[in-house]
Every structure is written in structure tokens, then in C-alpha cells.
Nucleic acid binder design. Structure first.
Lengths: 390, 390
DNA sequence: CGAGTTTGTCCTGAGTCAATACAAAAGTGT
DNA sequence: ACACTTTTGTATTGACTCAGGACAAACTCG
């Protein structure tokens, strides 16, 4: 029996503080009285908590404009300079890192070629970090959190890379511990698509929080995914992996997948598969796929048929996902979304016949941007998260 | 934006009270000092909270036995008489209801033939309830909560039956509201397999709480399921349905399912499918399936092959589930589990090749028992649940 | 029978929030 | 110009929570 998370009076403050900070983020500029109305927390107490946030430099006051009569409210907004985080996205070829402020805006970014060895990677990372520090003044030179996006299987609790197809030498590397001890900055490591999922959730502040949704990234040779269930990212047992929809078998007599099984969904919907329908003879490459998109847009029938086939296979898998999770939204990312008007109608049609009818929409950014911004958001998330109790 | 759940000092008490009540349930008989050690809550405060629980009649004291030297501790356990709930399981043919105490033990049960009309059902239910009331004395005649298990799609938030295949007249019936207003007792309505899932979780008090697992019920003509993700039951968008693994398409060229799609998993693994492999000519019936089990046990090669085929199809679907959810455990229920020694080895073998390696085990009760006990547990769950914050 | 040990209770202090009273800052009307 | 109203924010009080220390109770052991 793991000891449960008990509550103390201090916990109350942490919870309400997180709630207020989140509302300031989503509603800024916002007055104390508005916050009181949104939460039900009494005016006086809102002031008390906000005072703490201002003292810590996370929130700043700004004189508001008169709204009718009465005292003019003070507007509160996040103080961008209150917190500095570093988001990192490791890709097969390139590693990108970005310095960001409390609002998630990128202040500076750098990139380097991802080396074969993880130890070399850490060296490159450290020197990039030093250049950030040199560029930003000494006052703002403190980085409070690092989050690294990894295109592979990660134990999110221990920060160990379990398995990485594109960079085999990284498998088994305890990236979190190494980075943390060599930089002295708190660090987390997570799967790229899981981070993209949390990023999409963060970006969606329209109709309250999304509590159940799925993110799918259709890539060159596979499908990455993440899912939010009951408002929380699903990371599976021991937070190692989850939502590997790409390796859901949809045709047991299908082609063999490098995961060892036959007929995995990703073999039917990845960009290579789409290209293979168009021209089985020529080998797939990203640039040829871009060409295929142009052809389809120009009305080439063979190209159109290739995307129709992929859309049909996408429909099948998404239907499975809907039956399993009943999400509010299914978000799609990848080059495929560049031909949204061709793939969306069959998807919408397939989903309309199911008991759950999720919205299907393209991601708000490209997959690469989502990975990096997801890492930034995740690095910031500790400030905005309420403690887990029970 | 829905107003978030803020915390107050009273919330702290609710959280800690729920934690202690849960620990008393799982560790009874248990002393205050042990509870303090398990939770980190100070002795004095444990006493304070326990005093409240005793005053409400939920917990009782009992002199413990000397354990070495020192003052003899007072042992605490749940007071069975402190709370009365009614669990109800609606099945296609029969409705079972049970009066249970705080520990979930069944005190009395009744059954009646499920009528075609939901209004008639409510009449029958009310008279059964009255007989419970007559049987138990006037002192213990207060029933605090009702939970109804339904073999169909239910909006768990509104208590409306959305769709019920076996009893079509019930579809669209607002069962929760009708029962609540006609009995005056707080009522919840939920899907049968979801309740079975929470029941299995409740029964598993061995190694702390299970945080990620899947429950599968292989039935006559379909597969029901439920899943716990991050320690919470997944009920999908608007808490209508989720975990319909049975309708995951695993072979797009397979037979047509009554859900409208082709090659749903349940068509390959339900008891009828197993029987169909054995004897495609004769129609399936539960008694013939029992006969098939006897034949397989006796070593009949054709019967054995039928179960092997089903085990292979089970492996495929369970592998998909593992890739999607990475659960700690997959729990199987249904008649199929009577031939566990035949179906388990291929399942274990299939799962051993995946990145996540969940335990696979049979359910601790029969499916029917799980539905009823699940309803009882769910009716009790309000007492043991901590408030949701954030 | 006293020393030592363990369990549980009582009381104080620090922290939290709600609610009230009050101050501050604007518009409105004469 | 000046009192009045309205709205926003602040200070204070009281009720509730928990942690921690002092103390009482109940037992074993020598």
C-alpha cells in the first residue's frame, strides 16, 4: 500500500492558488472580483492569494479601464518574466531547444544535429544552454525547469529512455538524471506525442477544459498518439507508454510490422502507405509525398485515390478509437492534414454512424511545433497543476 | 467555463476522512496508531476524525489483543449496520436486487422477471423494496442509496438509459429520475460492465490500488468491458459509454456485426463464435456451450480446437488493448474462464511479446455476481470517495 | 511494584477560508 | 463643488483544519 496523499490546510492553498493562476492565464487581463465570481472564492481571499503570486513575480498588476461607475478594477495578468523554462525536442535528425517565458512564448531557440550517442547529446545540450544564459542577462539567467520531448518510449516517472527506434543508442539511457545532475535544473522527459497532446489541451481554452480526447500524428512511417481520459494524460502502467493506436491490429492477414505483429493500423495510414498506393514501385520519401499532395490538389485521379484509400483506413481506426474511448474530439496532425478537405468528409461520415460523435479537427500547429511547445507547456505545468489527493 | 472545485478547510477533512474510512475498510481491524503510520496524519488528528466516524455509526471500536508490551490498542472496523444500500442488476430475463450493509455483504436478495415495460419494472421494484423494508426492522429500515446495473448504454450523469439491445422499450427511459422520485432514495444508474470493473477494483486490496486495468466479459453473443485509467473509471464523453472493445474492428473483411460495421472483435470471441467453430450447423445455446466445455475438458479434439481458435482471437484483441492502454492487469469473466487452463497459455504467450506485460487473470466472481456486487459497491462508493478538486 | 513502552487524548499554535466592516475610487445629480 | 451611489479592494474576526508537544492510560517485564 503506497501511502495516500493526505490533505492539510496548506493543500487548500495550493489547490486554490493553482485554480487562480490558471484562470489568470486563460482570462487575462482579469480583476480580482472577476476571479472571485468565477471560482466562488471570497474577494478577500482572492486578494490574499493574488498577493502571494505577485510577491513571487508570477503575476503583475495593471490599471484597468473604468467600466461604468465604481472603483476602477486592477487587472491581473501573468508576468512573463516571472519564470523561465527550456523546452527541448529531440528528433531523429535534429534537436531543437527553446527558452520560453511563463506564458509559453518562445524567447530564443537553437538547434543542433542530433548525435548518435546520448552522452555527446548532453554535451551539445549543455553548451546550447550556456549560450542561452549568455544571451539573456544575468538577472533573467535562471532557468527553472527543463522538459525534453523524445520520439520513443520513455518512463515518464524515472526519466529513462526505454526504447527509441530512430536513435538506438539512446535506449536505456537515464536522460532525466544525467541532465538534472549536469545542469542542476529540474528536468522531465516525456514521449513527444504525449506532450503534443497536453499542448493541444493547453491551447484549447475555448469551452472549458477538454476532458476526453485523442491526438493522432500521422507520420512518414508510423502513427504516434496520446490520449486524455477524465482530464488526465494516460501514460499507462508505470507511466511507460500508452495510446499506441498505430500498433492496433486491424487486419490479421495484413503486412508484417516491425513490432512483430501483422496488420498494424499504421501500416495502412502512414505517409509511406499512402504513397505506396499511388506508386508501389518507387520508394517513399517526404519530398515525394509533398509532390503527391500537390498532384492531388491539382486533381490527379491516381493521387486522389491514394488519399481516399488512406482516409478509408483512417476511418476504420478512428472508429475503433471512438468505440474504446468515446472522446469529445479527435485531433489529427501530420502532412496529411494539408489535404484536409479530401480526408475529412469520409472521416466525418464514418464517425457519424457511431454512438459517440466526436468532432474531428486538425491540430492547431504542425507536429514538430507541438512537440516543442508541448515540452514548454509541460515544463510550466507544475506551476498550474493542483496537487493530487486521495 | 464550468466553475472549478475550490478547496476550503472543510475539504481537507473530507479528503482525510475518506482516506481513513478506506483504510479502515481494507485493513480492519486496525488501530488509530496504525492509521497514523499508514497516512502520515498525526495520532491526535486520526482520533479526532475517527471520533466523527464513530459518532455517525460508520465505524465501531473493539478491544484489540495485546501485541507485545504497551497499552493495548483499540481496533477499529466498519460498523456493518451503519449504512444500508440496495444494489440492483437488470438482466434481459431477470432482475435481481440485494440489500447490503456498509461492508458490501448481502443481507437479503430478491428477484423478479424483467418486464417488457420500464414503468412496470419500477412498480415491481418498488414492491420488492417494500418487502425489504418489512423484513428488516423499522430501525434499520432506512436505505441510503440505490444503484442499478443496466446491460446497455447509460448516461451515468443523468441516469437515462440511452440504448438497450435486450430490452428495447427501456431505451430513452430516465430511470434514475423515476426511481429517485418514486422511492425518495438517492439513485445512480450505470452500465453493468463498468460496475463489474469498479467491483473488481474494490475487491483487489492486495497490492494497493490498481491504477490501470481492463475488465472483459465474454458473453453469449458479445463482449462487455470497462477500464480504469489513472485510478478512475473511464466513462467517455458525457459519461455515456466507453471501453466498447467488443466493437473494435479487427478484420475489415469479417462478418457483419449488428452495430453496422464489419469484423468486430466480439464476433470472433463470444461464446456463439466458439460454438460456431465446433459445429457451424447447429444453433448456439448456453446449455450447448456448457456441453462444449465438458467435451473440451474430456479431451475432445474438435472442442479443444474451437477454444484454441477463440484463444487466438482473444490474444489479438487483448494485444490491441495492451498497446492502447498498457494496463497492469487484464481481467476476464464469462463462461470461457471455466476452461482457463486451455485459454490462458496462448494469451500469456501473445502478451509476453508486447512492450507492456500485463498480468492476465480470471475475475474473482462470475459476471452476474460482479454486476450485482458492483452496483452495491457503487452505491457505497460515495462514502469512500474523496472530493475531486481543481 | 516500579521502570519502560505503547496507545490514545488534550491543548496550543499556525494555517486556511468566509464573512463582515471599512476604505478607496470612480460616476451621478443637484 | 459636494454629497450620494456603486463598485473594487483591504483589514479584521471567527470557525475550521492539522501538526506537534505534554500528558494520561494501559500494558509488559524484571
Amino acid at each position: 500500500m503506497v501511502s495516500p496523499n493526505t490533505a492539510t490546510p496548506a493543500t487548500v492553498r495550493q489547490v486554490n492558488r493553482a485554480i487562480l493562476l490558471n484562470l489568470i492565464r486563460t482570462h487575462q487581463p482579469v480583476s480580482r472580483i472577476q476571479l472571485s465570481g468565477l471560482t466562488g472564492i471570497y474577494r478577500s481571499n482572492v486578494s490574499f492569494i493574488v498577493e502571494e503570486l505577485i510577491r513571487e513575480g508570477l503575476v503583475r498588476e495593471q490599471r484597468g479601464k473604468p467600466l461604468g461607475r465604481g472603483r476602477v478594477p486592477m487587472f491581473l495578468s501573468l508576468d512573463p518574466d516571472g519564470f523561465r523554462v527550456v523546452g527541448v525536442s529531440i528528433r531523429a535528425c535534429e534537436t531543437v531547444l527553446a527558452l520560453a517565458d511563463l506564458t509559453g512564448r518562445i524567447l530564443e531557440s537553437r538547434a543542433f544535429r542530433t548525435p548518435k550517442s546520448p552522452a555527446t547529446w548532453v554535451d551539445h545540450f549543455r553548451s546550447s544552454l550556456d549560450r542561452f544564459r549568455a544571451a539573456s542577462g544575468p538577472a533573467t539567467g535562471a532557468f527553472h525547469q527543463i522538459c525534453i520531448s523524445v520520439p520513443g518510449m520513455v518512463n515518464q516517472a524515472s526519466g529513462e529512455i526505454l526504447w527509441m527506434n530512430a536513435l538506438p543508442n539512446y535506449s536505456g539511457y537515464r536522460l532525466r538524471d544525467v541532465v538534472e545532475s549536469s545542469t542542476g535544473i529540474a528536468t522531465t522527459v516525456a514521449n513527444d506525442c504525449h506532450l503534443a497532446t497536453t499542448c493541444e489541451r493547453w491551447l484549447d481554452n475555448t469551452a472549458g477544459d477538454l476532458k476526453n480526447f485523442v491526438f493522432l500524428e500521422v507520420g512518414d512511417v508510423g502513427v504516434g498518439a496520446g490520449m486524455i481520459v477524465n482530464g488526465e494524460l494516460c501514460t499507462g502502467h508505470n507511466s511507460t507508454f500508452a495510446a499506441e493506436f498505430g500498433h492496433m491490429v486491424v487486419d490479421p492477414s495484413g503486412p508484417r510490422c516491425n513490432c512483430g505483429r501483422q496488420g498494424c493500423w499504421e501500416l495502412f495510414v502512414c505517409d509511406r502507405a499512402t504513397y505506396g498506393v499511388y506508386d508501389p514501385a518507387r520508394e517513399f520519401s517526404p519530398s515525394r509525398f509533398e509532390e503527391l499532395i500537390r498532384l492531388a490538389r491539382a486533381g490527379d485521379r491516381k493521387a486522389l485515390r491514394a488519399f481516399q484509400r488512406t482516409a478509408a483506413h483512417l476511418s476504420l481506426g478512428i472508429s475503433n478509437i471512438v468505440m474504446v474511448l468515446n472522446p469529445e474530439v479527435v485531433i489529427l496532425a501530420g502532412r496529411l492534414t494539408e489535404v484536409w478537405d479530401m480526408i475529412y468528409p469520409p472521416l466525418a461520415n464514418a464517425v457519424s454512424m457511431l454512438p459517440g460523435k466526436p468532432q474531428i479537427r486538425p491540430a492547431r500547429m504542425s507536429a514538430e511545433e507541438l512537440f516543442l511547445h508541448g515540452a514548454i507547456r509541460h515544463a510550466l505545468s507544475g506551476l498550474f497543476a493542483a496537487p493530487q489527493l486521495g
